[in-house]
Design a protein around this nucleic acid. Structure first.
Length: 424
RNA sequence: GGAGAAAUGGCAGAGUGGUCGAAUGCGGCGGUCUUGAAAACCGUUGAUCGUUUACGCGGUCCGGGGGUUCGAAUCCCUCUUUCUCCGCCA
């Protein structure tokens, strides 16, 4: 969330910026400023009352020590009234604080200056393309046919065991998953990321820290019995490691990555675009998460982009990189690049990675700061994350783009991991 | 799941109702000494909210929440976590 400070000091700027995200902040920022002012006013009054109370208490203590009971009792006369007032003010302050938080949480992050306005995904801007388009005949099969032909991923069986969106990987299909996970982790390590294997269930605080709660509650599976949530991405546990943490400046950047299974309810998503592996309730993903010095976070974003590009290149997939426009970028992000790979069977682009800089939007919620060497002040860090990569659509594209009459060719970089060079 | 013990600053560890934000040690930072370093010695060293042009000043925080009291790290309730013992278990 944004800080109340920036809204107080640069309200017009905030309103202007949020227009890029098609968000009208006029009314809510006014409420925020009003609530914030009220909160501070209450605190000033409460503080001075408490100060007086402390003073009187000390005097009483001294009087008792000197055995001056009568004077002590006289001093106590006023305390009841003070106590009453303090109680009342604290309640009001808590109320104002809660309301302020409620309001702040509703404001999206400010978009970076390079983000252009736009209604939706059609207005995203392609900033880079790479890879070679596969030479395919018109009748290239979509992956949902290929997985059946080679019996490597079983959607129906997943239906039997669990329900729609929970496929079962078998034989070379299972091995391919394992190969991709190890490949991504090994490449991540080479790029300087430390591996984390976090829990896939998190508590409410974590959900709030990264912004899934309270607004996007329906996205996550909720284990009500224990009030835990199945993670929709490794971003949640890995970023929350740094909740309430103050880092030393020289520790930055903190570069972590983790493989986890991811769980998404995706309530209400149906249609042709979600067929096969295109959208699942459970899938595998390696996520990279970086905590960066605020002045370096856009360099960090570029570094992460290069890493993802490197992965896609090694997998020999044709890709393009999009800079999301204001209408498509997420609530929490300041700047997001999407990676899409071409799928020859479906003849369309599939999103396989989303790399974002959240600036201090997440860290403000997380209270993750670093101690500035020069000023000795604690400052909010910038957080970034990206998929590197999400498996299902990568698998879909690999299968579709590499289909041959003899079977499905495995890209060279993966063969050491799969142990086979063809799926047949 | 049952019984007991505990939770204090970066770490270790005192403190059981009145200048306690908290002794002491270690660590960190600054300094003296030294050609340099070590040792020794001296000083300093938490977070957070508010206020102030500023120097400052005030409030809150001793696992979380609530309570008793003029006053709580200290007493009471509750939750969480850790340790020990028992049970169960991959």
């Amino acid at each position: 969330m944004l800080t109340s400070g920036i809204i107080r000091e640069k309200r017009d700027f905030v309103i202007e910026k949020l227009k890029v995200k098609n968000f009208d902040a006029t009314e809510i920022t006014a409420k925020i400023i009003e609530t914030d002012t009220r909160r501070r006013d209450i605190q000033v009054r409460a503080d001075s009352l408490m100060s007086e109370m402390n003073r009187i208490s000390k005097v009483i203590g001294k009087l008792y020590a000197e055995n001056k009971k009568a004077e002590a009792d006289a001093a106590r006369a006023r305390t009841g009234e003070l106590k009453e007032e303090i109680k009342e003010l604290s309640l009001k302050r808590a109320e104002a604080e809660d309301l302020l938080n409620e309001l702040l949480v509703q404001l999206p992050n400010l978009p970076h200056e390079s983000v252009k306005p736009g209604k939706g995904e059609n207005e995203n801007e392609t900033i880079r393309e790479g890879g070679k388009m596969p030479a395919m005949s018109e009748d290239a099969l979509p992956h949902w046919d290929l997985i059946k032909r080679y019996d490597i991923i079983d959607i129906e069986l997943g239906n039997k065991l669990t329900g729609a969106g929970f496929p079962v990987y078998k034989g070379k299909g299972a091995r391919l998953q394992r190969a991709l996970i190890n490949f991504f982790l090994d490449e991540g390590e080479k790029a300087g990321f430390s591996e984390i294997l976090p829990p896939v269930l998190v508590n409410e605080e974590s959900g709030f820290g990264t912004g899934q709660l309270p607004d996007k509650e329906g996205q996550m599976y909720h284990v009500t019995e224990d009030n835990l949530y199945l993670i929709p991405t490794a971003e949640v546990p890995i970023t929350n490691i740094y909740r309430d943490v103050i880092l030393e400046e020289e520790q930055l950047p903190v570069m972590n990555m983790g493989y986890t299974q991811c769980f998404r309810r995706e309530a209400g998503s149906w249609g042709a675009h979600v067929r096969g592996l295109n959208r699942l309730h459970q899938f595998d993903k390696v996520e990279i998460v970086v905590i960066s010095h605020p002045s370096k976070s856009y360099e960090t974003l570029d570094m992460m982009l290069k890493h993802v590009e490197h992965l896609v290149n090694l997998l020999e997939l044709p890709y393009r990189v999009l800079r999301l426009c204001g209408g498509d970028i997420s609530f929490t992000s300041a700047l997001t690049y999407d990676f899409e790979v071409w799928s020859a069977g479906q003849k369309r682009w599939l999103e396989v990675s989303s790399v974002s800089n959240f600036e201090s939007f997440q860290s403000n919620r997380l209270k993750c700061r670093y101690r500035d060497k020069e000023t000795k002040q604690n400052q909010l860090v910038h957080t970034l994350n990206g998929s590197a990569l999400a498996l299902p659509r990568i698998v879909a594209a690999l299968l579709e783009n590499n289909q041959t009459p003899r079977g499905i060719r495995v890209p060279a970089a993966l063969i050491p991991y799969t142990g086979f060079d063809i799926i047949d």
